[in-house]
Amino acid sequence: MPAGHASDPQELSADTPAKMHDAEAAAGRSGSDAPAGGGPIVETKDLRKCFGKNEILKGIDFEVLPGEVVSVIGASGSGKSTFLRCINLLEWPTSGQVLYHGQNVLEAGYDVNRYRIHLGMVFQQFNLFNNLNVLQNCVIGQVRAAGVSKAEAKDRAVEYLSKVGMEPYVEAKPRQLSGGQKQRVAIARALSMQPEALLFDEPTSALDPEMVGEVLSVIGELAESGLTMVIVTHEMAFARDVSDRVVFVDDGVIAEQGPPAELFENPQLPRTREFLTRFHAG
């Protein structure tokens, strides 16, 4: 694993400032997002999102600490994807706050593009750049968004591609890859940006069953290495294995959350219990 993703949270926060310094120097801005000690990387306060008249998120208070692996579970349509997309502003929240190291990223004039560099995202549908090959997919964001030099971007890309076992495919175009391979490249693309945290939106839901394992094992390794992650998933066994905390979203709010052992073995709310049993049954 890369130096920035050490398993000890202490070591991580000690290492992050240097890395961020580079990014800041590259973007020609500084000081706006200096990490605050042991505070959360990202935090949401009373986050709400409406589509037209439908309120989908009804006030979500949430935080991710450095090194934490959080799984988000909940019924289809409960707003999990919307929540994740509000965190990196692919959807613009209707009200509430999204704080990055304590700073509200929804403020007018905040550099959203630079904020997104620090938060990787892995999509259900992979969304690899179809016009670019595997290597270019992992290089382009570094060069065009983070201002990394081409040579360094390439080195990093190869490093992370080999981490997910996709290095031999550097020349392949996305359409030449299987679903599992695409998702591994997508993970390498996100890692190449050396983000502080990675967001996953059902990373295995679009995969054929036999490819789910290869992707989950990559994510599991990342979790072990200490990378901060928020994972929306329907893979309950996986969530139980890798998470430090499981968040149950129901009807646009966080209904219940806690360590996986507690939430899965001893859910407090009837609706959590109902969801979990329904899940086991079907």
Partner: peptide, 14 residues
């Protein structure tokens, strides 16, 4: 595919 634009935004591209 709109997913292409989203992925580009997600890595911070303008």
């Amino acid at each position: 595919d709109p997913g292409q634009t989203e992925a580009a935004k997600a890595v911070g591209m303008s």
